[in-house]
Each structure stands twice: as C-alpha cells, then as structure tokens.
Amino acid sequence: MSNGINFAFLDEYAKREIRRSVLKAICIPGYQVPYSSREMPMGRGFGTGGLQLTLALIGANDTLKVIDQGSDDSVNAVNLRKFIEMTCPGIDTTTRLQEATLIQSRHRIPEQALRADQILVLQVPYPDALVIVEPSEDKRKVMHGEADYSRLLVKLYEDIVKFDEITISHRYPTRINGHYIIDPSPIPRYDVPKLHNSNALILFGAGREKKIYAVPPHCPAEPLAFDDVPFRIEDFTDNHGERRACKLCGSQESFLDEFIDEQGERVYQCSDSDYCEQQQELAHG
C-alpha cells in the first residue's frame, strides 16, 4: 500500500500465525489455542481478538458485517468497521446478513441461520469457562486436558440448591464435540443453541487473553445441564403467558431488548436490528 501500511494492518507473519492458530482451533474443536496477540491501535477489551481474526481472514473480495449487541450502529461496531475499511481497501461492507461473507460480532449471534460460505467471528473477553471455579490458568489447562469439569457441574448444582435455578445468564458453559467446554463469549443463552451443528464456521478471538478457539461447522455443541434440569433460554413471556413481541416489527421469535421509552412505558424491541428491518420490509411488502 502506498501509505506504507500493509493490507489489513497486520504484517504477513502475524496473519500467518493467526491462520495457523485458526486451523489448529478447527482441528481441535473447543480447544483454546494460545497465540501472540498483537497490540492493536485500540484498547484491549474493545474487540482486539475478534479484530485480529477478521484482519487475518479478510480478502479484497469479502463483504463484511460488524455488529455489537445485535446492532450495526453501536459505537464499537462502527469504530471496528471504519478501521477495517480504512486498512482493507477493496472490501465491501454491509448490514444485511445475507450479503456478508465475514461477520464480526460482539454479544450476539444473528437471528437468521448462517450459511456454509459465511464465517462468524465473535469477540471474547473471557475465553475460559473454568475461570469461575479455578483462578490458575496452569491448573485449568490440566482440567481441560482431562475433561475434568466436575467443579463446573458442582457450581450448577449449588445454584439449584440455593436458588432452585441455574443462575448463569450469559457466557453459558457449552461442551463442544463431547470434550472441551468453552466460554461461548457473552452471548445470551438464547444464542447458545445456534452453535450446535451450525452451517457456518464460528471463530472466537480473545485478544487480551491471547486465545483463539473454534466451533467448526456441523459440530455438536451442548450447553451444560442435568438430565432432570434442562438448559433454558431467556423467557420473554408476559403476565398473560403470551410471548412478547418486538414493538417495531412484531416478531415473537427474536431476542428482545427491554427499555423504558420517553413516555415512561416499558417497551421491547429486537436486539438484532438487521433482522428487525427485514421483518418490517416483509410486512410492508
């Protein structure tokens, strides 16, 4: 490039290392591959892990979608998209899921099913599901190797004894391909079933913690639960037992954001703004 910055900002050695880590992550589903996370021109904790994956994978023919909290207009999504556009001349960006080949997201998996020719990159703050029961990474690595997740199960059991419910709201521990348990990033429980037998490759990047892991396409992903206490997603039924609907598009099938509007009324709205717009377009013909 004429301004002296390499395509996609990272140097080719950095990209190569990330791609090799990605290949390893795909070969060992759910295993956290350590990599030498580069310093990016933005703070750790702002999606640097996801960004490095995107930059290592993107080519001039790609169409990129970046979302945060389900929205293309959220500040983190806008900043990341601008940075990638600036450093990757020739790429296209979109807000429509169907047009995207590469999707970087924070906290959500899009409502509509992904295709086999798409890759989803998730930004990860805490890569290790065991961190809630074991602070030492040294010991966690051994526990993962031995598939020793008894302490996680005890944590779930203690929740049930104390609260009659599993209290983990998001970052729900999920077993990949029958062995490794991952932290699926802070997606709501509502999104966890979408990891199971996904058509698309799903990649996880934790920049601050220097880890990459993957849920390959058509790979089993089971949220941790007990035979008699099944895994449950967020409940959006109202007091009359009706599923709440989005205020804008009327969908009764999407993950909803709840807020108080200017009149002081409690309202619900799709968190996935692209899905919501497409539903509205369908309704208006």
Binding site: G43, S74, S169, H170
Partner: peptide, 24 residues
C-alpha cells in the same frame, strides 16, 4: 496495558448481557 485494558472495556454497551441478567 493488560491491567488497564479491561477496566476501559466496561464503558462499552452491555444491553444484551444485562437483559439476560434480568431474566435470571
């Protein structure tokens, strides 16, 4: 860098995870 990185992360929006917390 490592010790500061995550404190600045808390400035970011957390609607989705908070909605999930409210549910629990």
């Amino acid at each position: 860098i490592d010790s500061m990185g995550f404190a600045s992360h808390y400035k970011m929006p957390h609607y989705v995870t908070f909605q999930s917390d409210m549910d629990r």
